[in-house]
Design a protein around this nucleic acid. Structure first.
Lengths: 251, 251
DNA sequence: CGATGTGAAAGAATTCACAGCG
DNA sequence: CGCTGTGAATTCTTTCACATCG
């Protein structure tokens, strides 16, 4: 019998910032440790989980819980307590030995480490069902993401209200991105046009893109692209299900 | 020279091995159940990528391409050719040395390895924007996933048409799941009700669940749960963006 | 030849186990 | 004491390099 099979995505490939060739050869001296908050590099897998801890902490916070142990936060997040403590160690030492973590304090520090101290402005490209769903998704604002625009190329859709926004014409994308100061874009459009739109978005200066289009997009160095694909997720489930259903090949 | 920064999911957290059901780790007799050691278990990271190769192969197929090398398939999939060949080696040896792979032949074998030889019946719970978007998403049918039902608890929504389906009353979920033979469920509903609905789905005998709800769901051993979270993805992007914006404070 | 398939090496991520401190 | 924080051990992934075979 299988055990719990919760799997969450994460990010395999690291982001190689524009020219972030740090690490290796350093002329002299160690890392430029900044006085305030050291900016170490957090392993990708840990970054993915930190967002989960953050959500769990915020839930605790709204429940009025003030302190939490690594053990119970780990359980609430679906990871082992050793993984949790290791992950937190990348952020800093914000716990009290023998006691645990102060919820709000830890939450604040994780947020800071993830760069969530200021709001990010998100534009959604594609006002189909998915784009609309995303635009109305309440989970964004509460987490520091501000949806500032939504685009579509279909003139029948341009001008429609979606949430408290109005659909902009994709033809004006560059101008609107500029005007609204969007620094993240979510692609919620068909595979066929995804690459072309992606190229325009990149040319417009956006460096962070989340794509829901079921294609492999090519982006230049320095651009951070993540991908979510429903079909892929179902296929992975299918693999595990099939495996479970074949309990005994009884050769 | 690729500076491509694509990141794709993967699956970090793997299947909690055998019975290590999380929970308060109150270990009571470990069950050394490794019976049914399936000879060929594919590493999680490889499974995730195989779905990508599959998509790339199908694209090639519809373009009329008949053969492909590991090099070019790898490029189309955004991975290194050595990773691709290693991944394929978990599935079997279906290439021809000195030549490459026959597209259709390889596609078929990967499909088989992933358990996509028969159609899976998917029920969607939640007919809000996201649920509707998923129900109409064309990418499912073409990949062997059949959406057989969509539920909602809101009586205003029950009975509405979504694609070629009609929204069923969530109150009848168990009966409809049974009747339609659904063996996978997608949760597209608010965090507040996700756990309760998840429990019902599990009780109804579904072992494969894909959740879009922004909460950590608890499921019993033997149930396969995957999670997709938009906010998490954006937060990960934020982390990288913030890091890129602070290239080197050495000043 | 030329590209696959695969041991072996290198590199990450996770788990262990315990030192250290409140 | 109890729980955090962390080096060390373990396990999983990716990359390398080349034997292998069409």
């Amino acid at each position: 019998m299988e055990g719990i099979v919760t799997s969450l995505d994460s990010s395999p490939q690291a982001v190689q910032g524009a020219e972030n060739a740090q690490g290796t050869s350093r002329g002299h001296g160690p890392q430029p440790v900044h006085a305030t908050e050291a900016a170490k590099q957090i392993p990708p897998a840990a970054v993915a989980r930190l967002t989960i801890y953050l959500r769990a902490l915020n839930t605790l916070l709204s429940d009025g819980v003030e302190r939490v142990s690594s053990e119970s936060l780990a359980e609430a997040s679906g990871v082992s307590s050793s993984t949790l403590r290791k992950d937190l160690s990348y952020v800093g030492s914000y716990g009290t030995r023998g006691v645990g973590y102060e919820v709000q304090y830890l939450s604040r520090h994780i947020s800071a480490a993830l760069g969530l101290t200021h709001d990010w402005k998100v534009a959604i490209v594609g006002a189909g069902n998915l784009g609309k769903a995303l635009a109305r998704y309440g989970g964004f604002e509460s987490r520091g993401f501000d949806v500032v625009a939504i685009f579509d190329a279909d003139q029948m859709v341009v001008g429609n209200e979606v949430g408290w926004l109005r659909v902009s014409d994709a033809a004006d994308m560059e101008a609107v991105l500029q005007r609204t100061g969007a620094n993240m874009v979510v692609l919620a459009l068909p595979a066929t046009v995804a690459q072309a739109v992606c190229d325009r978005v990149v040319a417009a200066g956006v460096h962070s893109i989340l794509s829901f289009a079921p294609v492999m997009l090519q982006v230049p160095a320095g651009v951070n692209l993540r991908k979510v694909d429903m079909a892929t997720e179902l296929q992975i489930l299918a693999y595990h299900a099939q495996r479970a259903q074949t309990p005994d090949q009884t050769a």
